[in-house]
Simulated assay, not measured.
Amino acid sequence: MRAHRLSGLYLITMPVADLFERVELALQLGVRTLQYRGKDEAPARQLQVAGELRQLCRQYGALFMVNDSIQLARECAADGVHLGQGDGNVAVARKVLGADALVGMSTHCLAEAVAAEEQGADYIGFGCLFPTGTKTDTTAASLHELPRVRRAVRLPIVGIGGIDADNAGRVLQAGADAVAVISAVMQADHPADAIRRILQSCQTA
């Protein structure tokens, strides 16, 4: 298990024209966990993109995760999979991907966080902590509940939802080990500046 490596900026992709350039830039600047999220892309395209992203992560020594799809994670030899509440269970993912695979689970409240730990997840994502336009069907979670989750579970916690350089420090101070970021990097006009600012916020939290 490599959950102990989860810290700082956990970058999640979205379809953008310069995806690979942005990802490589992030890896060069120090991001060490990347999750590929391409739900609306065709299966063949998903496998192609995932394979190229996995190679970049190998090159820079970063963890490479796949969102939702256990099958895609297996096909592209990802380091693990991140599951939503309706995307399968930890035991199945572990059986398909092997004992060394990293399995994360999205949670939105204390009860879900505790249940994820009981199921054997390696880490949890907790959110949505701030308003976000990336996912319109997400469930809100309170930043004030994060310290309670931190006390209740031993797993690494990745805060998610509307996180940027201005609030990343608050999320870490509330008990998260890492912050998941999507649009603040993937849609930034100046991604290098955005990445540096978020990393700085993580280091000084």
Results as ranks from 00 to 15, higher is better:
Asp40Thr: 13
Leu47Asn: 02
Glu21Val: 12
Glu118Arg: 15
Thr136Gln: 08
Leu9Ser: 06
Pro131Gly: 04
Cys57Asn: 02
Arg45Gly: 02
Glu112Trp: 09
Tyr123Glu: 07
Glu52Trp: 04
Leu47Ser: 11
Ala42Ile: 01
Val49Ser: 04
Arg150Ala: 05
Ala42Val: 03
Ile70Gly: 00
Ala176Trp: 04
Val66Ala: 00
Asp166Met: 07
Ala184Gln: 11
Val90Ile: 15
Leu47Ala: 15
Ala111Arg: 13
Pro43Gly: 10
Cys202Asp: 12
Val96Ser: 12
Asp166His: 11
Leu110His: 04
Asp100Leu: 10
Thr139Asn: 05
Leu53Cys: 02
Ala140Arg: 12
Ile198His: 00
Thr204Gln: 11
Gly127Pro: 01
Ala178Cys: 14
Tyr10Met: 09
Leu199Met: 15
Asp189Asn: 11
Leu34Trp: 07
Asn67Lys: 08
Ala3Ser: 15
Gln119Tyr: 00
Met186Val: 05
Asn67Trp: 11
Pro156Ile: 00
Phe126His: 04
Ala91Lys: 14
Ser183Arg: 12
Val81Cys: 04
Gln173Lys: 14
Lys39Ile: 12
Leu83Gly: 05
Gln200Ala: 13
Gln55Lys: 15
Phe130Thr: 00
Asp87Trp: 08
Gly61Pro: 04
Ser7Gln: 14
Phe130Leu: 01
Leu29Ala: 11
Phe64Ala: 07
Val149Gly: 12
Gly125Ser: 01
Leu63Glu: 13
Val103Glu: 03
Ala121Val: 13
Gly88His: 10
Ala26Asp: 08
Val158Leu: 13
Ala93His: 07
Arg148Gln: 14
Arg150Met: 06
Ala3Pro: 05
Leu146Val: 09
Glu21Phe: 08
Asp122Thr: 07
Leu146Gly: 01
Gly88Lys: 03
Glu145Ser: 04
Met1Cys: 01
Asn67Val: 13
Asp137Ile: 04
Val181Lys: 07
Pro191Lys: 07
Ala165His: 05
Ala116Glu: 01
Asp189Leu: 14
His82Gly: 06
Arg74Leu: 14
Arg58Lys: 15
His82Leu: 09
Ala140Thr: 08
Asp122Glu: 09
Gln28Tyr: 05
Thr134Gly: 01
Gly88Glu: 08
Phe20Asn: 02
Ala192Arg: 14
Thr138Arg: 05
Val31Thr: 07
Gln173Cys: 14
Pro156Lys: 02
Met105Thr: 11
Leu19His: 02
Gln173Met: 14
